[in-house]
Computed example of a mutant assay.
Amino acid sequence: MRVLNFYSSAFADQLRRGRKTATIRLGDKSHKYRKNDCVVVTIGYQHSPREKIFNAVIDQVEVKRVRDLSPREIEHDNPEFRRVDEMVHFLERIYDRAVTLDDTVTVVRFSQIIENPPELRDRLHGLGGANN
């Protein structure tokens, strides 16, 4: 199983609340993450303890230029942003280097795996008003 790690603990709350459902990574990461992969979403720094936030499934992996990022993709990565220039500035802080509109990024969309959610369990067992 792969790990989808975030370095900033500021993301922990966004992840737990379902507000962060994507990550935009600099470079082509399509070899690392693939649709339908199961990953462990963690927070922490390399060579340090990491906190498991949840298991997730990769829904979509798309490689594109920074200039081609949509406001929706940016918002799924960081609910505070909508514009490409905000994303560029954010990526520059994370990667500690200049980022241009021509740089390649990988948009990784993911969904939390919820263990035994009641509404799904009830549906599978014919409860909750379903007519079988």
Results as ranks from 00 to 15, higher is better:
Phe110Cys: 01
Lys52Pro: 10
Val39Phe: 09
Glu51Cys: 08
Ile114Met: 07
Leu127Val: 05
Val99Leu: 11
Gly126Gln: 07
Arg16Phe: 05
Ile58Lys: 08
Asp37Gly: 10
Val107Gly: 01
Val108His: 03
Gly44Gln: 11
Asp85Glu: 15
Thr21Ser: 08
His31Arg: 14
Ser9Gln: 15
Ala10Gly: 03
Ala56Glu: 10
Tyr33Gln: 04
Ile74Lys: 00
Asp96Met: 13
Val107Thr: 02
Val108Asn: 01
Arg83Thr: 09
Asn55Leu: 14
Pro117Lys: 07
Gln112Thr: 06
Lys32Glu: 13
Asn36Trp: 10
Arg123Val: 02
Glu62Val: 05
Val107His: 02
Leu127Gln: 11
Tyr45Met: 13
His47Asn: 15
Asn36Ala: 09
Val63Lys: 00
His31Pro: 03
Arg25Lys: 13
Phe110Tyr: 09
Phe6Thr: 05
Gly128Ile: 13
Thr100Tyr: 11
Phe81Trp: 08
Arg121Glu: 11
Arg17Phe: 10
Ile53Ala: 13
Thr100Asn: 12
Arg83Pro: 04
Leu101Gln: 13
Asp85Phe: 12
Asp37Met: 11
Ala98Arg: 15
Gly129Phe: 12
Tyr33Asn: 05
Tyr33Arg: 04
Glu119Lys: 02
Ile114Pro: 02
Arg19Ser: 00
Ile94Gln: 02
Arg109Leu: 05
Ile114Ser: 07
Asn78Pro: 00
Gln14Ser: 10
Glu115Gln: 07
Leu101Glu: 14
Val39Ile: 11
Ala10Pro: 01
Arg93Gly: 06
Arg67Ser: 06
Ser9Gly: 12
Asn131Phe: 14
Val61Gln: 00
Val107Pro: 01
Ala22Arg: 01
Phe90Glu: 02
Ile43Gly: 09
Ala56Thr: 13
Leu91Gly: 01
Ser8Leu: 15
Arg2Glu: 14
Pro117Gln: 05
Tyr95Thr: 06
Ser8Ala: 13
Val84Ile: 15
Ile43Ala: 08
Asn132Ser: 14
Val84Met: 00
Asn55Lys: 15
Val63Arg: 01
Phe6Gly: 03
Ile114Asp: 06
Ser8Arg: 12
Asn55Arg: 15
Val63Ala: 00
Tyr95Gln: 06
Arg65Pro: 00
Arg121Cys: 03
Tyr33Trp: 09
